[in-house]
Computed example of a mutant assay.
Amino acid sequence: MTSAVVFDIDGTVCFDGRTIPAETLDALRELTTRERVVFASARPIRDLLPVLPADLQHLDLIGGNGAFTRSDGRTTTVGIAANERGVVDALIERHGLAALIDGEWDYSFSGDPSHRIFRQLDAGRLARNVPREELDTYSKVVLFTTAAEVVDALRASTLSIHVHPDEGLVDISGPNVTKHDALRRLGIADGSYIAFGNDTNDERLLRHAAVSYRVGSHPVLAFADHHLAPEQITETIVGLASPLAEFAPPA
C-alpha cells in the first residue's frame, strides 16, 4: 500500500471544468477503500468542493497550487507576505492588469467573464467578490497576462509562478508554495506516493513521486513514468484499485 495516490483535477480527472465523469468517480471511490486519496488542484478549496461529490469531500485536499490544505475538515492557508503582495499590486497598477486574487475564502476578480477560469470561479456561490484591498490575505493570484516584462519582474521576486501561455495567464503563490510542498505538510514523504498530473504546476509533484502519470501531452512532464490519454484515466484508476495491484517504490 502506498502512503497516498494524488490526483490533479482539471485536465487530469475533470475535463469540462465542472464535473468528474461518473465512471471515474466510481473508480476513485473503489480506490479509497485501499489507498489514501488526495486531490491537488490549482483551484482554491472553495472552488474544488463543487467538483467533488459529497461522499468524496472529506478526503485530503490541496488547493491553490499548495496555498491551501484541508485534512480532517480543517483548512490551513499559506498566504503571500506583505512585501510580496506589494510586488503583485504594483504590477497590477503599473500595467493595468486584470486579476483573480484569492483570499482565505473570499476573492477579487477583475478579469473577462468569458474566460474559461470564470466558469470555475465560486460555482457553489460560497464566497464574495470584493475589491482586492478588502482581502486580508492574498493566498493565490492569477494575472491575465504573459507579457515578458511582467513575467520577468515576478521571476526576479521570491514568488512561485507558473506561466500558462495557452490560457494567457500566470499563476502566483508565495515562496516554496507548491502542490509538492503541501503534500509534505500533509505528512506524505517523497517517493512514497503515486501522482497524476497534466501541467507545469504538477511538475514537482510528479518528480518526487514513486510512480508518476502524465495525462495528456505537456512536454514539461515528459519525464513521467507513464503517459496517458485522457480516455485512459478511468481504467488506470481501476487497475490501481484492484486487490491484485502492487506498489513497489524504485530501488
Results as ranks from 00 to 15, higher is better:
Met1Lys: 07
Thr2Asn: 05
Ser3Trp: 06
Ala4Gly: 01
Val6Glu: 06
Asp8Tyr: 00
Gly11Met: 07
Gly11Phe: 09
Thr12Met: 00
Thr12Lys: 03
Phe15Val: 09
Asp16Ala: 03
Asp16Ile: 07
Gly17Trp: 04
Ile20Thr: 06
Glu23Tyr: 09
Asp26Arg: 12
Ala27Tyr: 11
Ala27Cys: 10
Leu28Tyr: 10
Leu28His: 07
Leu28Phe: 01
Leu28Thr: 10
Arg29Trp: 10
Glu30Leu: 08
Thr32Met: 07
Thr32Leu: 06
Glu35Ser: 09
Val37Lys: 07
Val38Ile: 15
Phe39Ser: 03
Ala42Trp: 02
Arg46Asn: 09
Asp47Ser: 14
Leu48Ala: 13
Pro53Ile: 03
Ala54Gly: 12
Gln57Ser: 15
His58Phe: 13
Asp60Phe: 03
Leu61Gln: 11
Leu61Ile: 12
Ile62Tyr: 01
Ile62Phe: 04
Asn65Thr: 05
Gly66Met: 00
Ser71Pro: 02
Gly73Phe: 11
Arg74Gln: 13
Thr77Lys: 08
Thr77Ala: 13
Val78Leu: 03
Glu84Ile: 00
Arg85Pro: 09
Leu91His: 05
Ile92Met: 12
Arg94Gly: 02
Gly96Gln: 11
Gly96Lys: 12
Leu97Phe: 03
Ala98Asn: 15
Ile101Leu: 14
Ile101Phe: 11
Ile101Trp: 09
Asp102Ala: 00
Gly103Ala: 06
Ser108Arg: 10
Ser110Glu: 14
Ser110Leu: 10
Gly111Asp: 12
Ser114Tyr: 00
His115Asn: 12
Ile117Tyr: 12
Arg119Glu: 13
Leu121Cys: 03
Asp122Cys: 10
Val130Glu: 06
Arg132Cys: 02
Asp136Asn: 10
Val141Trp: 04
Val141Gln: 09
Val141Tyr: 08
Val142Leu: 13
Ala148Gly: 06
Glu149Ala: 15
Glu149His: 15
Val151Lys: 14
Ala153Arg: 12
Ala156Cys: 03
Ser157Asn: 14
Thr158Gly: 15
Thr158Met: 11
Ile161His: 14
Gly168Pro: 01
Leu169Phe: 05
Asp171Met: 07
Asn176Lys: 09
Thr178Gln: 06
Thr178Ile: 05
Thr178Cys: 03
Lys179Trp: 02
Lys179Leu: 00
Asp181Tyr: 08
Leu183Ser: 08
Leu183Glu: 10
Arg184Tyr: 01
Leu186Pro: 06
Gly187Thr: 15
Gly187Phe: 05
Gly191Phe: 01
Gly191Thr: 09
Phe196Gly: 02
Gly197Ile: 03
Asn198Asp: 15
Asn201Pro: 02
Asn201Ile: 07
Asp202Phe: 04
Asp202Ile: 07
Glu203His: 05
Leu206Trp: 01
Leu206His: 08
Val211Pro: 00
Arg214Val: 09
Gly216Ile: 12
Pro219Thr: 08
Phe223Val: 15
Ala224Pro: 02
Asp225Ile: 00
His226Arg: 15
His227Asn: 12
Thr234Phe: 03
Thr234Arg: 12
Thr236Val: 08
Thr236Trp: 09
Val238Tyr: 00
Leu240Ile: 09
Pro243Leu: 00
Pro243Trp: 03
Leu244Asp: 13
Glu246Phe: 02
Glu246Lys: 13
Phe247Met: 02
Pro249Asn: 11
Pro249Met: 07
Pro249His: 07
Pro250His: 13
Pro250Trp: 07
